[in-house]
Each structure stands twice: as C-alpha cells, then as structure tokens.
Computed example of a mutant assay.
Amino acid sequence: MASTSVHAGVAASSSSIQRPRRSWKYHVFLSFRGEDTRTGFISHLYAALTRKGITTYKDYFNLRKGGFISHELLNAIEDSMFGVIVLSPNYASSTWCLDELSKILDCKNDLGQQIVPVFYGVEPSDVRYHKGTFGEAFKKHEQRQDSENLKRWRDALTQVASYSGWSSKNQNEATLVENISQSIHKILIPNLSSSMKNLVGIDSRVEQVINHIGIGLDDVRYIGICGMGGLGKTTIARIVYEAL
C-alpha cells in the first residue's frame, strides 16, 4: 500500500468563474399517473434518485386536487433540470398529466430542460399515434374539452414519443429504475461542477493528484491532500473524482 500527500495551494479569481445559464431548484420533476405507478415504479424510482443525491420534486403527492394544474406545480416544473415523464396506460386519461406534459415540453424549448420519457407498459407508437388506451382517453376528452386543448395535448404526446427514452418491455423493473437514475446521475455530474471550471492554478494540482493515484496499478493507495482551510482541498478532490 502506498501513501502520499499533495499541498493544496490554489487560488480562484472571481472574474474567471463561469456562471451557469440559470439556477435550478430541483434536478428532477416526475410526471406520472398515480393510479398506475405511484406505489410501485414511481416510489422505487424516487428512492433510487434520492440515493444518488438527485433532488427530486416530491410535494406534488399532496397537490393533485381539482381539475386544474396548480401554480406551485407549474413553478416546480420550471425549476427542474429534468422532466421524467412516465407514460403508463392511463396517463392520457388525466387532463392534469397532459397539462404537465405540455408544460414540460414548453420548458424544454424555452429553458433547456432535458426530457426523459419512460414508456411503462405502453408502446411508443401508441403514444405517438394516440392508439390503444391513449386513443380511448381522447375519445372521452373530445366530449368535454375544447379543440385547442385537444390539439395541444395531441401535439405534446406526438412530440414526447419522438424522443429517445426508456421502455419497461422485457425489462426487470429494478434494473430499469437503476439504469434511469444512473443515466441522469452521469449527466448531472459535470453540470453540478460548472462553478468549479476555470479556477486559477487548479489544473496542475489535479494532474498531480491523478498521477499519484496510479490508475491501472494493482494496489491500494491513500492520498492525503493537505493545506490550510479555504485553499481548495475539497474542490481538488471533487474535480479529480468527476474527472475519473
């Protein structure tokens, strides 16, 4: 076992720190039909995201009351980096879910939100072309909704079905949940460290730590990063972790 230490003398110039385009309150917003998925798939997915340190909006469990989407929910969608849309058999039967979907797609176009469709127990073609339970749902909506809402919802379903997503078909649910949460985590890692880029003098110290790690060697090493408080020890450790 080898050990080494690295001095962490690092300075940051406030003018050199690249600010993110916007700040997000949540990493993930989950859109789903409660009666299909709340106590099973959604609860497992929420737990997996939380274990990975991914902040997922959760108060909506108690907000789905009445026929109209709440302002709080709309704000939560806008404040989320990812919109994870779990398209289950009864998703389109809920006007609430369809309004959520429309809002999420607006946020993708206007705010750069990332879309993650999950086809849970449905075929993407049924979503795209409004067939099966999706077609049945729209037959009922046609009796009560105006043409503007119907067109908006149909367009949203067609659009979301065009994105590359995840399917539950022939999938172990535990594996599917882990794969979804892991893929989001991989995308989040560089985004979470955007404020650490362009730190003055950081590159040489990160390279020094990586060299001491001895990647590919068949041994175990403890690396101590020493220095006074505020010199950037944690910053170096985090950048090295993300780089590897």
Rank of each mutant, 00 (worst) to 15 (best):
L87R: 11
I85S: 05
S102N: 05
L87A: 04
T158G: 04
N109G: 00
W96F: 13
N90L: 10
V127Q: 15
Y91L: 14
G135T: 11
Y129G: 09
V116R: 03
M81T: 03
L101F: 06
R144F: 07
K140C: 05
K151Q: 12
D146C: 07
D79E: 15
F119D: 12
Q114W: 01
V84N: 01
L150Y: 05
E142T: 06
C107P: 03
K151H: 13
F138W: 08
A137T: 12
I85L: 09
A76K: 06
D99E: 15
I115K: 02
K140V: 13
T158P: 01
G83Q: 03
D79W: 04
E136G: 08
R128K: 15
L150V: 07
S162V: 00
H141F: 09
W153D: 06
Q143W: 04
D146K: 09
S162R: 07
L105A: 01
F119E: 11
A76M: 04
N109V: 00
W96I: 08
S88E: 10
S93P: 13
G135C: 07
G121N: 14
D79A: 14
F134N: 10
S94G: 13
Y91Q: 14
G135A: 09
I77K: 01
F134K: 09
S147I: 05
Q114S: 02
G132H: 13
K140T: 12
F82C: 08
F119M: 12
V84P: 03
E148L: 08
L98G: 10
N149Y: 04
I115Q: 02
A76T: 01
E148M: 07
A156P: 04
V122K: 15
Q159M: 05
Q145H: 07
G112E: 03
D155C: 02
P89C: 10
A92I: 07
E100Q: 08
F134W: 09
Q143I: 07
E148V: 12
D155H: 02
F82S: 05
P117F: 03
E123I: 10
V86E: 05
F82Q: 08
G132E: 05
N149Q: 12
G112M: 00
F82K: 04
G112W: 02
D126N: 15
V86G: 08
K139M: 07
S94A: 14
V160C: 00
A161L: 04
Q159L: 03
V160T: 02
V86Q: 02
A137Q: 10
H130C: 12
T158N: 01
H141M: 10
D79Q: 14
K140N: 13
W153Q: 04
S147H: 07
Y129W: 09
G135V: 09
